[in-house]
Design a protein around this nucleic acid. Structure first.
Lengths: 358, 358
DNA sequence: CAGCGTGACACAAACGATTGCGGCCAGCCT
DNA sequence: AGGCTGGCCGCAATCGTTTGTGTCACGCTG
């Protein structure tokens, strides 16, 4: 039942010193308060007995747990495993432990989970669930708990944030489509309560304006980052007679949903309409056609978030509101094609399209 | 810095009782050692002060941490997020916390990670990384640490195991292919140091034998569950002139690798060769053609593993070697087709196949 | 009315580490 | 030679709970 039968006093006895001395000998930071040969004796004893310190006792005394919590909305979403992995790797390297909590996309369970983590005395949080207005984050800020945001941020800007360069990513999509000759581009916007949704939409507007392309009526917001929402949005756009030869989706799943909805209308991608996704989930390159999308360095984001938090925990107060935007990359694949033949109004897919004008 | 400024003594003072009494009043199991009105006073005081118990101190005293560790080989593998999620949900329900450790498929980091978790005093382990001969598991058994295996098991059978019904899954694949007229079936076996690899291979042998089909030279082992290994295996089989019209892969990734390798040889799936995968990762249904594969209830597996462990921690010593096999389902999709026209030797894919006999 | 059980609580010792404080001794300086 | 410095280490308090053991008063029984 006991974590480990050999305690510090056992090591101390074996080495013929007091427990306090043994503690110092084993602690790199206090090692110089002990004579070198004592250090050696203690170390040998510790190794001999297979001593492993009791983290709980240490944590109780030092009020540090060497645990950080990572909060994700849904680990099943292919976005997050990479972030988790990146974070885990650097945390393990520094002997920190990662506890994962999946909020199931529900603010209420998020709140209670975060409370539970705090009771557990975690040293800090990495939060990937930030909503634009996020009371949970406000509480963390209030309590001055070291916290860094990854992937999404909130509007306060009170926490360091590590993300991808969304503006540039979207701009590359627009530029790419424009190069292909597209002029009427529809944007499937992400939820406005996420920073990614807002940022990408704003970037889309800016990119279009910079190219003197119209954006009015070219943006339709999706309630969530799901296939269904993407399909729904496209159907809505089609219903109101929107005219477009290309779609810039705020997210891969939206892009997939869009493609499926278009296919049901007999509109082919990329022949009739080009589509870009966002995030480059693992499977995007395997689809047929392979999706053009923006690759985000998720692993690095997770790792960098962990490093930032670790530095904070080590005492380096972070610059207030450091916002790190990692470079992204446009993966040009099969869902974007020249707009030369693209004219949905007259061309469906060879005879299959229900609304084709023969 | 302190987890929470209000301690149990504060609550006790507010309620006008001793800390010990307050502790009992707040503990459902010891509540009946305290008069009802005292319980009420203490509860009110606790609520008023916003008391939240210090989990570290409690853990130190009780040597229980209410933490369980979940060990996965690679969270990036689409298999595991569902297991994690299932486990997390039931763990959270019982106020347990899940710490995730990703071993990066490396026995050495697995070993050190597990040691770190033990030092941390986790109450138990859920292990998804089991190898067939697994010294880490032996150590856990030796130390009598509550542990349950999920997805893979080891050869000792000393721990409860929750998995899918691999034998039935593979049998359904073989039966399905046979119904389609296939007689020469190649098996891409998983690594022999995993129970899944062994079990599925054995099931394949048995299913084939039961149908009077030959298995000699029809099995090729893959070193790992990766696309590359799958491709490599198929190439090896082709090189040695193996004759087959269908492939039963031990895993989705192997199946994908196999398909790609075949395609490079101008062999079309499902026209020339049918392929079945295993696990039904999220994206399998999105591929073109959509993969026929075996759906495994990963979420339920994770949840059930957590429940089993929790019961153990509650004191219900598990039946020695309870092995729970959850039912699986064959998802018939596009990579399996009738063997009627399948005769690789003479038919490539219309003109594209480099080795087509015109 | 004595004696005894018992309910309700207080007391204090753990759990296993860290750390401020102070003691001891050797060596150095004057 | 004596005092002082400083290195090295022991002592004991401390972190916040839980829990075994006392203690006290009360009520019941014979």
């Amino acid at each position: 039942m006991r974590v480990n039968k050999v305690r510090l006093v056992d090591v101390a006895r074996e080495a013929g010193v007091h427990a306090g001395t043994a503690s110092r000998a084993l602690n790199p930071a206090a090692r110089d308060e002990v004579s070198p040969q004592t250090v050696r004796r203690v170390e040998r004893a510790a190794r001999k007995l297979g001593y492993v310190p009791n983290t709980l006792a240490r944590g109780l005394r030092t009020s540090r747990s060497f645990v950080v919590a990572l909060v994700v909305p849904d680990i099943t979403n292919p976005l997050f495993p990479h972030i988790v992995r990146g974070a885990e790797q650097v945390l393990a390297e520094f002997d920190y432990t990662l506890v994962l909590t999946d909020t199931n996309n529900d603010p209420k369970t998020e709140r209670s989970q975060v409370a539970a983590m705090r009771a557990r005395g975690v040293d800090g949080f990495i939060v990937a669930t930030a909503r634009w207005k996020d009371p949970v984050l406000d509480e963390l800020a209030e309590a001055e708990i070291p916290t860094v945001l990854v992937n999404r941020r909130n509007d306060g800007g009170r926490f360091p944030y590590i993300g991808g360069d969304d503006r540039h990513g979207i701009e590359m999509c627009v530029e790419h489509l424009m190069q292909l000759g597209h002029r009427s581009i529809l944007h499937l916007a992400g939820p406005a309560d996420t920073s990614t949704g807002r940022e990408r939409t704003s970037a889309f507007r800016q990119a279009m304006r910079a190219r003197r392309l119209p954006t009015s009526r070219a943006i339709v917001e999706c309630a969530s980052y799901t296939e269904q929402a993407g399909a729904h949005a496209v159907n809505a756009a089609l219903d109101r007679g929107a005219d477009f030869t290309a779609i810039v989706a705020a997210n891969d799943l939206l892009a997939i949903g869009a493609q499926e909805a278009l296919a049901e209308h007999g509109i082919n991608c990329p022949k009739d309409v080009s589509i870009t996704g966002y995030n480059d989930a693992d499977f995007m390159r395997r689809l047929t056609p392979a999706f053009t999308t923006v690759r985000v360095p998720l692993n690095r984001m997770g790792a960098l978030a962990a490093r930032t938090l670790l530095a904070w925990l080590r005492g380096d107060e972070p610059e207030l509101s450091t916002q790190i935007l990692l470079p992204v990359e446009l993966m040009q694949r099969g869902t974007t094609a020249s707009a030369r033949w693209a004219s949905r109004k007259t061309t469906g897919r060879d005879g299959e399209a229900p609304n084709t004008v023969a």
